[in-house]
């Protein structure tokens, strides 16, 4: 292990502790107490909230915006692969990856990075997006896209890009809990509360 591995590891620990703090705070605050008489099934509603309700044909934010939705999905896939590789790199050096695998991963992550760049440009160019955005939005996208690009470079040229890759990951991991990237946790919490709200009132799952 080199210094940059330790740096990445330390950032990971800080990230984990910070996100755990966010999580524990939500647990401590607990569910809202609801005194009204429940008419639905919370378990089924929660299951629906995390599955069918997320399908593109169930949300206008997906089916009315196919290009953006697809770009967002690919961007997230690229990020998930990059995160997975970050963990794998502690055990297997990219130099040991078979060429075919490196190429497949590169293509997938490159698609994600391209979509991330596209979304960043959209945020800068489209007025309604610009009005909605602030520095955190640009920075979060930029750091994540950069993370994907450095993952590719590290995969292809491990010796040359190892230090810079780990430095970028460190910055990203330290930034995540304070910027909007913490939606990695709050997304699940939001779906939970939504499932609970609609489930309590027998709105979800829908009955036709």
């Amino acid at each position: 292990m080199y210094w940059y591995h330790y740096l990445g590891l330390a950032a990971l620990v800080v990230f984990a502790v910070a996100m755990l703090w966010h999580f524990l705070r939500l647990i401590r605050e607990g569910n809202p107490k609801d005194f009204s008489k429940k008419t639905g099934n919370l378990v089924k509603a929660e299951a629906y909230a995390y599955t069918t309700a997320m399908m593109p044909n169930h949300k206008e934010t997906a089916y009315l915006h196919i290009p953006t939705f697809t770009a967002g999905a690919l961007f997230h896939i690229g990020t998930f692969i990059s995160i997975l590789l970050f963990a794998v790199f502690f055990f297997i050096s990219p130099a040991q990856f078979p060429l075919w695998l490196s190429r497949i991963l590169t293509v997938c992550i490159l698609a994600g990075a391209a979509c991330g760049t596209g979304l960043l440009i959209k945020r800068m160019v489209v007025k309604k997006m610009r009005d909605l955005s602030h520095l955190d939005d640009y920075l979060s996208n930029f750091l994540t896209t950069l993370f994907q690009l450095f993952t590719i470079l590290y995969l292809m040229l491990p010796h040359m890009f190892a230090p810079v890759y780990y430095i970028e990951v460190t910055v990203l991991l330290l930034y995540m809990p304070i910027g909007k990237l913490r939606h990695v946790l709050y997304f699940f919490a939001a779906r939970y509360h939504l499932g609970r709200f609609y489930g309590w009132r027998n709105v979800w799952p829908p009955k036709k």
């Binding site: 605050e29 569910n31 206008e60 915006h65 309604k128 913490r182 709050y186 939970y192």
Partner: peptide, 22 residues
């Protein structure tokens, strides 16, 4: 902030802007 619901919803928006048309 009496419970986690408000905390959650104040932290969750990613500013994708896709809700505008809804």
């Amino acid at each position: 902030r009496p419970d986690s619901k408000l905390e959650t919803h104040l932290n969750a928006c990613v500013h994708c802007g896709l809700c505008a048309e809804s």
